[in-house]
Write a protein that binds this DNA or RNA. Structure first.
Length: 939
DNA sequence: TACATCACG
DNA sequence: GACGTACGTGATGTAC
């Protein structure tokens, strides 16, 4: 959006009023007039005006409840309640407030605000202007276009075509067609029964619009859907009329009258004072201003409009995101390669046919050399599928450089030590490009050196927001890249990227490289000023290669054994299910917590039932164990059934489905930038939550086996988070216990229960262990009582004794909460910033959650850092020792290796040495090593 | 798709 | 005096 074009801002007044009224507690003026909505509205509008400016501006209001839509459909918005009586007298004041800001009010009898917005947007853009509608109302999304955007007033986020597509699954011009089908319960728009947003989008994508769909309704395969469309055709047409905004509504005021007025601080000050809004007077810097017309240059007046910048627009001089070049001949490719080399930095992105890097086939590569200067090199685009028409010519693949020639031309660049390759989530692309050519389309290229914008962002902003490219682009560049779904379609209509036509593919793929480059230019320099450069360079960036190797290695799983376990579990579940039905007195779905709750608490009238927020009975393990302990057979049997059910579906079946037939191994995908604490996470499959705590679970773990001639070696950090507690809070007794390698929970028990070391029994140790862990989770007396099954008074006594014994810990907990409150983040012992969301929230519950997260983050995050340090050092340490062990998995405080049998002793020593020496704390680090033929034995 | 549940550290 | 009550993940099944 350009500054030089006229720009109209239309504020949806109803949305502001509604939010203001409900967000604020009742407030009254001295004379008793309620003003909470006036206050909120004034505050929000003032705030908005300091941030945004247009050449024209207006606030649009609804005039009356009854509009022309009620003639079409009497029930339209019929179930909307009357506005609350306290709100009614505030409407007039809100219009006064708008006028006091020098902003025009628009409203018109018989029309909704949305129609006026549509009409002004149409008129204004027809004259070549840009329009921003301040509202997140989905009914306005139909207006979005090249010259019209919405702005979400809460998230301050522009809503453009990609966001509309995300919401409705179609482009803005088709939104009314989708709404006509899906209806809208909040506005009483009936739509077609049985058709929701998803189905509607699918149908419109296929048939184009409502009329065409209704004409073709007979061809719909699903019988229910077909009948529904046929029976409710008229209702759909009415719905369409209801949601279609009337862009031809009369304009109550000519556009010229919406010209943004220079502010009149005096007028605004008078209004604020009349309402008694002293805090707003103060905030807007109008205090002390007697209300006299502002002839002297008032220092605050320009603050309202002057410092404004266009909404969500990129900097004036930023090049556009496209058009980009499609590279289909070798000469052109070579020119790009040369240019990239000369630039010294090139952003790179691969397009494939799968999210799974180990199976994905390379489809194309995009490069970006400077902002706005990017290209797409299609490599394996196939023909678009024909429509089956025999008369049509056989579809042909588009012209592109033969894969091997293109890769040969690219390889020297990608491996050139003098050219930095910038990627977003580099691990994925490196795995795709690094796979050997023998496997088909891929290339055996070792891309280096590499920067990763996802990890740069994560190194500075973990916990603050996500780190996906689209989110970062919007946040840092003010630009929404084309959504992947818009390129390939969704659901049944999705096509592989290799079948996307080159024009679309280029617009999408080259844009991603362009965005990556711009993000790099923006974020990389921040690393130094944010003191995150060392973390990024020495830990996160080096983790890319380490995890890549681990993922590609995978771990062997005995599929036959898995099948045997599944068979056994199935049989036992059948027996248990019969018993459960007998005990219940009738058959029901044991897997349904809802049905189980009704059996236990409604029918059998067992005590201790609690309803959750949805009103359903809680039946989780804690509840069932409690009932079981009271001697009830049914909950006990259900617990057993649930355990088998979980193990069977998640681990036996889930894991078997992930077994790679090519090598008999499972390959996880470690996510490097998901957690708020610096930990990794693991998906598809998650190998960080393989069972171990029960005998049944151990059987699953036994199916993780070493290759022939190898053993599995597991190395666990011992009590790493409690060691960090002893270190951070500098607790003499705990430090002493760790220094002497004593049992830490027994030491705690002796300290807080004042026992001689040899008098600590199992119960005392158990309690001490619970509280030790509870402390690093920020637990309360209530929580401890629940965990220990004791009264809150007793629990409080234990906590008091704990803090009396370890005063440094209480101080550390308070310090962490304060650190989070002041900075918005806490630091791990190694300096990683972990942002804590909600720490200043007024909502007590939310703030409580944030405070506990702040307490826990340095411990969890510190531990994550320590094991990452060990992981980046490990490959070289093993290699230097001449060892062939492969690191396979990381499970937060454990590393799992596959070791040639003859190298077990030497490998154990190296692993232990590396793990214990990566950090110098006030307590020693300790790693415990085990080995065996399978993962269970290795522990 | 939201929720409940439960697997792990 | 009420509020809510242990941190961080991911996968699955049910029910809307």
């Amino acid at each position: 959006m350009r500054q030089d074009k006229p720009h109209l801002i239309l504020v949806d007044g109803s949305g502001y009023i509604f939010r203001a009224f409900h967000a604020l507690p009742p407030m009254t003026r001295p004379d008793g007039v309620p003003v909470n909505a006036v206050f909120g509205f004034t505050s929000m509008l003032g705030n908005f005006l300091t941030k945004h400016a247009g050449s024209h501006i207006a606030v649009v209001f609804d005039r009356s409840r009854v509009t022309f839509r009620n003639q079409i459909y009497a029930d339209y918005k019929a179930h909307r309640p009357e506005p609350p009586p306290e709100l009614v007298p505030q409407f007039a004041l809100i219009r006064e407030a708008t006028a006091a800001f020098g902003v025009a009010c628009l409203e018109l009898e018989n029309y909704e605000a949305d129609d006026l917005i549509a009409a002004y947007a149409k008129a204004f853009s027809a004259e070549g202007g840009q329009v921003t509608v301040v509202s997140s109302d989905k009914d306005l999304m139909q207006l979005v276009g090249p010259n019209v955007q919405l702005l979400d007033p809460i998230k301050q986020k522009p809503i453009r075509e990609p966001e509309v597509f995300e919401k409705f699954g179609v482009t803005p011009d088709k939104v009314v067609e989708v709404q006509a089908l899906a209806g809208d319960s909040t506005d009483n728009v009936p739509g077609v029964p049985g058709i929701g947003l998803k189905t509607a989008a699918q149908l419109i994508q296929e048939y184009g619009d409502l009329e065409n769909l209704l004409a073709c309704a007979g061809q719909i395969k699903q019988p229910k859907r077909r009948e529904s469309l046929q029976n409710f055709a008229e209702q759909a047409r009415i719905s369409r009329q209801l949601v279609l905004l009337d862009a031809d509504a009369p304009l109550p005021r000519p556009i010229d009258e919406l010209l943004a007025q220079p502010p009149e601080p005096g007028k605004l000050a008078i209004f604020l004072r009349d309402q008694g809004f002293r805090s707003l007077l103060h905030r807007m810097g109008l205090e002390g201003d007697s209300g006299a017309p502002a002839t002297s240059q008032p220092r605050h007046a320009p603050a309202i409009l002057a410092q404004a910048e266009p909404v969500g627009a990129p900097p004036e001089d930023a090049p556009a995101f496209g058009p980009y070049e499609t590279v289909t001949d070798l000469d052109t490719l070579n020119r790009w390669v040369e240019e990239a080399r000369a630039a010294g930095t090139v952003a790179l992105d691969t397009e494939t046919d799968s999210l799974d890097a180990l199976h994905a086939r390379l489809v194309g590569i995009s490069l970006a050399i400077a902002p706005g200067r990017a290209c797409y090199i299609p490599l394996a685009h196939g023909p678009k599928p024909g429509n089956g028409d025999m008369l049509e010519a056989a579809p042909v693949a588009p012209v592109q450089i033969p894969l091997r020639e293109a890769l040969s031309a690219l390889q020297p660049l990608l491996e050139d030590p003098g050219t930095l390759k910038v990627l977003h989530n580099a691990k994925y692309d490196l795995e795709v490009l690094g796979r050997p050519q023998a496997e088909g389309a891929n290339s055996g290229i070792e891309v280096s050196p590499v920067d990763d914008t996802m990890l740069i962002s994560y190194s500075m902003d973990a916990g603050r927001h996500g780190h996906g490219m689209d989110e970062l682009s919007l946040r840092h560049l003010g630009h929404s890249p084309i959504p992947y779904d818009q390129v390939t379609g969704t659901g049944r209509n999705r096509v592989p990227f290799s079948q996307v036509d080159l024009e679309k593919a280029t617009a999408y793929a080259a844009e991603d490289a362009d965005v990556t480059l711009r993000l790099w230019q923006m974020l990389k320099p921040r690393l130094r000023s944010d003191k995150a450069l060392a973390l990024y360079e020495q830990i996160e960036r080096r983790m890319i290669g380490v995890l890549k190797q681990m993922e590609m290695e995978g771990i062997r799983v005995d599929g036959v054994e898995l099948a045997r376990i599944g068979e056994d579990f199935s049989q036992r579940m059948v027996t248990l299910e019969q018993k459960i039905h007998e005990l219940a007195g009738r058959p029901f779905n044991v897997g349904s917590p809802k049905q189980l709750g009704e059996i236990l608490f409604d029918e059998m009238k067992l005590p201790g039932g609690k309803r959750g927020k949805a009103g359903a009975w809680g039946t989780d393990a804690a509840v069932l164990e409690d009932l079981s302990a009271r001697g009830h057979e049914l909950p006990k049997t259900v617990l057993h059934w649930r355990q088998l059910s979980k193990l069977k579906s998640t681990y036996v079946e889930g894991l078997a489905a992930q077994l790679d037939p090519r090598d008999g191994r499972v390959h996880t995908d470690f996510s490097m930038a998901i957690t708020s604490t610096g930990r990794l996470s693991s998906t598809e499959p998650n190998l960080q939550n393989i069972p171990i705590r029960t005998e049944e679970g151990v059987r699953i773990r036994r199916a993780f086996v070493a290759s022939p001639g190898h053993v599995l070696l597991a190395a666990d950090y011992s009590q790493i988070e409690l060691r960090l507690l002893a270190h951070l809070a500098d607790v003499p007794s705990l430090r002493d216990a760790f220094a002497k390698d004593e049992d830490i929970h027994s030491r705690t028990a002796a300290d807080i229960f004042k026992l001689e070391p040899d008098k600590v029994d199992r119960e005392a140790r158990r309690r001490a262990k619970t509280i030790n862990f509870g402390i690093i989770y920020g637990m309360s007396a209530f929580g401890l009582a629940a965990r220990l099954g004791i009264g809150p008074g007793e629990a409080k006594g234990i906590i008091d004794a704990y803090f009396a014994q370890y005063p440094g810990i209480r101080a550390e907990m308070e310090r962490l909460k304060e650190e989070a409150r002041i900075n918005g983040f806490v630091l791990t012992p190694f300096g990683r910033k972990l942002w804590i969301d909600g720490i200043t929230s007024k909502d007590m519950s939310r703030r409580g959650n944030a405070e506990r997260a702040a307490i826990n983050a340095p411990f969890q995050g510190g531990a994550a850092e320590i094991i990452k340090r060990a992981m980046v050092r490990m490959p070289k340490a093993l290699k230097d020792a001449g060892l062939d062990a492969k690191m396979l998995l990381q499970v937060h405080d454990e590393l799992l290796f596959e070791v040639p049998q003859g190298q077990l002793t030497a490998t154990s020593a190296v692993v232990k040495q590396v793990m214990e020496s990566v950090a110098e704390l006030r307590v020693p680090l300790r790693a415990e090593i085990g080995h065996g033929a399978n993962w269970a034995e290795a522990h």
